[in-house]
Design a binder for these strands. Structure first.
Ligand SMILES: Nc1ccn([C@H]2C[C@H](O)[C@@H](COP(=O)(O)OP(=O)(O)OP(=O)(O)O)O2)c(=O)n1
Ligand SMILES: [Mg+2]
Length: 1165
DNA sequence: ATCCTCCCCTAC
DNA sequence: TAAGGTAGGGGAGGAT
């Protein structure tokens, strides 16, 4: 858990300290190429100091009261380090992030000091933050003497200004929180937002938030953990260095007065953020315009704010800009661990279950109507208990597991003594401390949790029951068979004696299990026993801690009736709220409401489920096999970017991580979704939680990749393009996630090579797939994953020993035919739907191909490719082999198999909602960028105060293109004509067989409708601004209670947006082409692939009679290759470049020729 | 009706 | 300081 000290950069520090503010000449901004942390960091510091200089020079209206002073901030302060920094610099002072030796630093600002620090800083003047604040306030430098920080322990010694000697001083003054806060009213206001200018006088007028006072009061009370007794046993590494330092920084106060709704859009459109040059310029500009009154700090962009924040090496280190962030973060993230463990357990147990069932399918089945006995086993305060093993002295004291003692630290687990104070898992430290100042804080010990879990599960498995994991510390065991056997009946008929014996057996099993686990781990687990999963869970509540409880059939209703609905699984804040609206608070209240009413309010499934739950009914079985449907990676903490490069870099690591996980699961995916959290306009730049995301709006987009992939480069490309599509300034990003869905099992070559390492490309596959006719094409290569739905599991055969090759080749051609039949949009339309970056590029002029010779005999064409034979491999998650599979009950088997299949219905793909303007250039932060807002659905608990949540829905339908281009309501059958291809399209249409033409037209109509619908709405759509998925909420806060929701809709008007667009199957082709390029980029295309594509396209024109599509594909090929070559640069050798160009030529010319051949004239490609 | 997509919600 | 991840269920509403 360490990760404390970053001994690293001491060299860097040296560097910095020598770089005083008088000396900003040194190194200039350098192009931000990442060259390792140290180097990058070094440059960063210099950059910052230059920034400081500029701030200073532009703050001429502020009295330079701090001239000659060079400050350094230690520990937590109020105002924040960031704010102090700005204050000082804008008033003529210097600021250094580091100390280190004898340096330019003249004063250290701190609220208090540990004795240790006091010694370390003995050479400096140590003053309270109020010195700065007050000085600024009065417009002159106040004597620092009056603001000394006197450490209670060791007296403070201060060095004379000129240097060398140490004057020691002592003071009786008490250090403490008060010391730092009472200096100002101000503290509570400023802590949070940077952009809040420092019109001190202005702020002064503002009323103090009541919370501020509380805050002040709850201080680092003397009682909290880190006091003396804590020291002895604590892992020193864990012990926070500046114990008492944590000034309860102003927490969750109201939004600061002048916050920055502005800087959201303020980001100057044109200035490129990532250009260092641009940065400085823009800053200047900012300062210039902002002829703010003196004493006002220049408003900084979010990026600059972050730059200053990150100038603290420790903060930088724990933020996303650290190249090692992911590894570091995931190592410490409890939630990540929980998720990972859960997934791993699930696959292990499922594998085990599969194995078992295949070997002895015997006892598997349970009689349908038989009584059930389910055990729900769960560690008592898992993390806390395990961690406490190393701190036995706190056993009986309120203790929690958390990373830190700061107010924003989350409590992962609290022991029962702590619960007596009302502390709960997931609560923030601030709230916990208010409830119990004396909390002991324990460090995490993930390896220990794993170990305990292992022991726990081994005991559980020993019960010989049917096991289903719930989480690391929790499992369900169906022991019905065991109990019923013990009872000696068939388990169905009510035989008193049998039932008694069954129940006794269940109790005995539980007891033994508890004992077993206790003996193995030293920890208590509790067991809930009931006739179904619901009851077992409910019983568990009563069992805790360190106990067990069995709910008997006759007490079910009375037992659960008195519990509040939140005790039901699946009922929490939102659904609980809806129930409340129905006048339901307790479970028994549910019984007073008709099922119908529940269904109306909650939906069919949920409504019925609750209706049943209320009556103790739950038919869910233990051990259902579940097939993974998605793989995702996301980070919503530590996200603070200074520029686009960092974003790119981070997306790259996320992509790499996603790829790793896809490989681990043995799957690839066809759809990529990106989730973004952006700081809400009314949220402070610095949220209450350290590096937390704060109140945010979220945005999602997804792309159909056309071809399943696990390639990180492709993932990154798509992710970045989606991200750009949002048009969000890097500095405003607070969370980023990517998710792969529409998974397919990865293929393996015969020799076990994974497909990704294999040479052969999607192309061949594609061509054969597209190719056609079902009949002839029994292509063995054909490895496409089963596309069929549950319909024919038989089609999927699991080959010799566990591996299987599906045989989609026999798919009724029709499906495919149809698939490629839809001409979909015409070129321009497609263009409009393309990912932004692509579109941008597309609109550029193509560099005419240099030449077109096609080396016909590339040495490359070595038949190197292993065998084309591939096999299907199930995701390792469910290690089912043939045997296993066959042993499964039919329904289960088909379900599993179905999970690997793809819905048959031809469906449109969702394309990224794109911004309307086709000719957009892509200044990423161009404000005019419109992002389609996903529809906010009025769900969940309505905003507290505002009663009308009805209007919400509106903001969703917005249009996406400037009205100018509005689709006349008219038929506009010609619709998207615009360009040349149109003629082709029309003609093409005319040539279609009637039925197909109808389909085509229908498709177009649909597309049109969609667009129109989009346009219909918000008329004032001109300004475009991304609209969050859910404009409300996403505040931080403990889930304990209502997650704060914003009470009102964001002030912003519903911006124009896009309607999702169906891209039609051309998408598949595009994806395949792209994959082709990606895979063979450096190696050059294989002639046979080129040939396959060319001849396929020829068929498209001649047989499918879809010239439009062929043309589009050809253009796509040209674009992908040409742009790709440009970007690849040296990476692709001359020879291969030529081959690629030749390939393009061959494809393009092939299509042209064919079109002509059909008498359709010339087309431009 | 039923499917599909895009979310919200919940759980640990 | 702090490590706010991740997957599945399912509702809303449009398309079929
Ligand atoms: N918000 C949460 C909830 C749980 N956990 C982790 C820590 C818990 O120890 C573990 C198990 O969660 P439980 O819900 O089982 O809670 P406990 O085991 O801590 O307590 P108990 O089961 O006794 O109620 O998951 C977490 O990190 N954050
Ligand atoms: Mg537990």
């Amino acid at each position: 858990m360490g990760s404390r000290l970053e001994a690293n950069s001491s060299a860097v520090r040296k560097r910095i300290e020598n770089h005083t503010f008088n000396d900003e000449e040194g190194e200039e901004y350098s192009g931000s190429k990442f060259g390792g942390f140290g180097d990058y960091f070094r440059r960063k510091q210099i950059k910052l100091q230059n920034l400081d200089a500029e701030i200073r020079s532009k703050s001429t209206e502020n009295p330079p009261i701090f001239r000659g002073i060079v400050a350094h901030v230690n520990g937590y302060t109020q105002p924040s380090l960031n704010d102090l920094h700005k204050l000082i610099v804008s008033h003529g002072g210097g600021f250094l992030q580091y100390l280190e030796g004898k340096t330019a630093v003249t004063h250290i600002i701190a609220s208090s000091l540990t004795p240790k620090k006091a010694v370390e800083f003995r050479k400096y003047r140590i003053v309270k933050p109020a010195w700065i604040v007050d000085s600024v306030n009065v417009g002159r430098l106040l004597p620092w003497n009056s603001y000394r920080v006197i450490d209670e322990g060791a007296g403070q010694r201060v060095l004379g200004f000129d240097g060398g000697k140490v004057v020691s001083e002592k003071s009786a003054q008490k250090r403490g929180y008060r010391d730092q806060t009472d200096s100002s009213w101000y503290t509570s206001q400023l802590g949070q937002s940077i952009p809040s200018p420092y019109p001190i006088p202005f702020l002064k007028k503002r009323p103090l938030s009541p919370e501020a006072d509380n805050d002040t009061l709850d201080a680092p009370s003397p009682g909290h953990i880190t006091e003396e007794d804590a020291d002895d046993d604590y892992d020193p590494d864990f012990e926070v260095e500046n114990e008492h330092m944590h000034s309860p920084t102003r927490q969750a106060l109201e939004t600061p007065p002048v916050t920055s709704p502005a800087d959201d859009k303020i980001t100057k459109p044109t200035e490129t953020e990532h250009s260092p040059e641009g940065e400085s310029h823009s800053l200047k500009r900012h300062l210039d315009d902002g002829a703010e009154p003196p004493s006002k700090l220049p408003k900084l962009t979010a990026e600059k704010h972050n730059a200053i924040l990150l100038s603290d090496p420790r903060i930088r280190k724990s933020s996303v800009v650290n190249p090692d962030f992911l590894e570091q973060y995931y190592r410490e993230s409890r939630l990540h661990h929980l998720s990972t463990w859960k997934a791993d357990l699930k696959s292990e147990l499922q594998a085990m279950a599969a194995e078992k069932s295949s070997s002895q399918k015997a006892k598997q089945k349970r009689a349908p109507g038989a009584r059930r006995y389910i055990l729900h086993v769960d560690f008592d305060s898992f993390f806390a208990t395990v961690s406490l093993k190393k701190y036995p002295q706190y056993q009986d004291k309120p203790a929690v597991v958390a990373h830190s003692q700061g107010t924003g630290s989350e409590i992962a687990s609290c022991n029962y003594p702590a619960r007596k104070f009302g502390i709960k898992n997931g609560m923030w430290m601030k709230a916990a401390r208010e409830l119990c100042p004396d909390l002991k804080i324990l460090p995490y010990d993930f390896p220990a949790y794993e170990e305990a879990s292992r022991a726990f599960y081994s005991s559980i498995i020993d019960t010989r029951g049917l096991v289903q994991s719930v989480s690391v510390d929790e499992a369900l065991i169906d022991v019905s068979n065991i109990c019923i056997a013990e009872g000696g009946s068939d388990g169905k008929r009510p035989s008193e004696g049998s039932i008694y014996r069954e129940q006794a057996k269940a109790d005995a099993l539980a007891k033994e299990l508890r004992k077993d686990v206790k003996q193995k781990t030293g920890c208590d687990v509790s067991v809930g026993i009931g006739g179904n999963i619901l009851l077992a869970k409910v019983a568990l509540r009563k069992a805790k801690p360190a106990g067990q409880y069995q709910i008997k059939p006759d007490e079910v209703l009375s037992f659960i009736g008195e519990l509040e609905v939140q005790n039901l699984p699946g009922v929490a804040y939102s659904i609980g709220g809806k129930l409340e609206e129905l006048g339901i608070k307790f479970i028994k209240d549910i019984r007073e409401v008709s099922k119908e009413k529940l269904v109306t309010k909650l939906g069919p499934k949920t409504g019925e489920k609750l209706w049943e739950y209320a009556r103790g009914i739950d038919r869910t079985e233990v051990g259902d096999q579940i097939v993974r449907k998605s793989v995702s990676v996301e980070v919503n903490w530590g996200v603070r970017f200074e520029n686009h490069e960092q974003v790119d870099e981070f997306i790259q690591s996320l992509s790499g991580e996603l790829r790793r996980r896809l490989l681990k699961e043995g799957v690839k995916g066809k759809q990529l979704t990106m989730k973004i959290m952006k700081r809400s306009a009314d949220a402070p730049l610095d949220p209450p939680k350290h590096l937390g995301h704060g109140k945010c709006d979220t945005y999602n987009k997804s792309v159909a990749l056309g071809v399943s992939t696990n390639d990180d480069a492709a993932i990154m490309r798509e992710a970045l393009s989606m991200l750009k599509g949002f048009g969000i300034t890097p500095g405003e990003l607070r969370g980023i996630g990517i998710q792969m869905t529409k998974l397919e099992p990865m293929k393996l070559t015969v020799d076990g090579q994974s497909e990704s390492s294999q040479k052969r490309l999607p192309f061949k596959t594609m061509s054969s797939r597209l190719k056609d006719n079902p009949v002839e094409d029994a292509n063995p290569d054909e490895i496409q994953t089963p596309k069929k739905p549950k319909a024919a599991p038989n089609e999927v055969t699991f080959g010799s020993n566990q591996l299987a090759s599906s045989s989609p080749s026999k798919r009724p051609l029709n499906t495919l035919g149809t698939q490629f039949m839809l001409p979909t949009q015409v070129d321009p339309k497609v263009l409009a739907e393309l990912p932004e970056d692509i579109r941008a590029k597309l609109t550029k002029q193509y560099a005419p191909p240099q030449e077109k010779s096609l080396p016909s005999s590339p040495l490359l064409s070595k038949p190197s490719i292993p065998e084309h034979h591939v096999l299907n491999l199930l995701p390792n998650q469910s290690q089912l082999d043939t045997e296993t599979l066959n042993a499964l009950p039919d329904d289960v088997r088909s379900e599993i198999l179905a999970a690997y299949t793809i819905s048959p219905s031809r469906r449109r793909q969702t394309l990224l909602p794109q911004s309307p303007r086709k000719d957009r250039i892509l200044p990423k932060n161009l404000l005019t960028t419109a992002v389609r807002p996903t529809k906010p659905r009025g769900r969940g608990r309505p905003p507290k105060v505002l009663d009308s949540n009805s209007t919400l829905t509106q903001s969703s339908f917005i249009l996406n293109r400037p009205a100018s281009r509005g689709t006349g309501s008219g038929t506009g059958s010609g619709t998207e004509s615009d360009t040349a291809p149109m003629d082709v399209e029309a003609e093409f249409l005319a040539a279609l067989p009637e039925d197909i033409r109808r389909e085509v037209l229908e498709e177009q109509r649909r597309a049109r409708l969609k667009k129109n619908a989009g346009i219909a709405y918000n008329p004032n759509a001109r300004s475009t601004k991304p609209v969050p998925v859910n404009p409300s909420i996403l505040e931080e806060g403990e889930p304990q209670q209502a997650p704060e929701r914003t009470l009102k809709l964001p002030p912003r008007p519903p911006p124009p947006s896009f309607t999702t667009q169906k891209l039609s199957k051309i998408e598949d082709l595009r994806g395949a082409v792209r994959a082709w390029w990606d895979e063979f980029r450096t190696e050059g295309p294989y002639p046979e692939d080129v040939g396959a594509l060319a001849s396929y396209l020829k068929k498209v024109v001649l047989e499918e009679r879809n010239m439009s599509k062929a043309v589009m594909v050809a253009r796509w090929v040209r674009w992908v290759v040409e742009e790709g070559l440009k970007e690849a640069g040296e990476e692709v050798n001359k020879r291969e470049r030529e081959i690629w160009k030749g390939a393009v030529e061959r494809v393009v010319e092939g299509v042209k020729g064919t079109v002509k051949e059909r008498g359709l004239g010339e087309v431009g490609i």
